[in-house]
Design a protein around this nucleic acid. Structure first.
Ligand code: FES
Ligand code: FES
Lengths: 131, 131
DNA sequence: TTATCGCCGATAAGAATTGTCGGGTATAAT
DNA sequence: ATTATACCCGACAATTCTTATCGGCGATAA
């Protein structure tokens, strides 16, 4: 399909939550309970967002996660690429697919992809939070 | 990921081919050979495009497929949705996902999706063909 | 009559996503 | 110190989706 993965979905939900309730840190189990998300899976998602510099973490009791920067400084494309890898519109681009040498649509689709990425670059977590 | 399926890929390649060499009909096996695509899979893709009204078909020897309308009248979103079903940015929207009642990003992401769809509506097979 | 091709559903094979486990380290509270 | 909570991480199992194949049928031009 052409759809956001559950990983990215969970990530965006959590980021919005942290944007809205950012006074103190929130733990993975707590957020998972709130949104009915498998706890250990959400934990892994949040850990990856820490590694990518989108979240800050605090271990120990009363620990948890908080945004690493302002919600208006975090774009949706950053979240998606952090969790799903770089956005590739065509199946080729990365892997070596059977029709690489004869593929006629790789180049024209590149500019399409750039427009799509543009939309996602222009959307911030803050926008998700207020709407 | 967030990537075009092989089905859609094959479909776009074939449509571009027909846009460029549209004098007579081209058969599925012929196009498949040209682009190194599994023949029976491409056949199924093209058949679906016929059902959706994007292609016209002609049975028998020297038969094959041709565009049902001008290449500038066929948009990329039509092809994608014909082959992958309606474009859903969020995992929910269609299925009943576990977090539906508490999901906070469904609505804000809808407008993002509409912008993405807009890009794909504005791109025609003709544009792919000349670039 | 025959060879070529479109049409269709069912199914197998393969790949990716989703979810789970187990064992670690950090830290605050008691 | 001890304990309880939570982050961290890789490996694995379960599930789902995509990709590809198969078999049988109807249409049509040579
Ligand atoms: S699909 Fe692989 S090169 Fe275009
Ligand atoms: S992810 Fe299912 S409702 Fe938002």
């Amino acid at each position: 399909m052409f759809r956001l993965s559950k990983r990215a979905d969970y990530g965006l939900i959590a980021l919005k939550h942290l944007a809205l309730h950012g006074e103190h840190a929130h733990s993975a189990p707590e957020i998972a309970r709130t949104y009915n998300i498998p706890s250990e899976l959400l934990a892994k998602v949040l850990q990856r967002l820490v590694r990518k510099g989108l979240l800050a973490s605090q271990a120990g009791p009363n620990g948890g996660y908080a945004l690493a920067r302002g919600a208006e400084m975090i774009t949706v494309i950053e979240v998606i690429e952090a969790l799903e890898g770089p956005l590739l519109l065509t199946p080729c681009e990365a892997d070596d697919c059977e029709q690489f040498p004869v593929c006629s649509i790789r180049d024209p689709l590149r500019s399409v992809k750039e427009k799509v990425v543009g939309v996602l670059v222009d959307t911030t977590i803050h926008e998700l939070a207020v709407n």
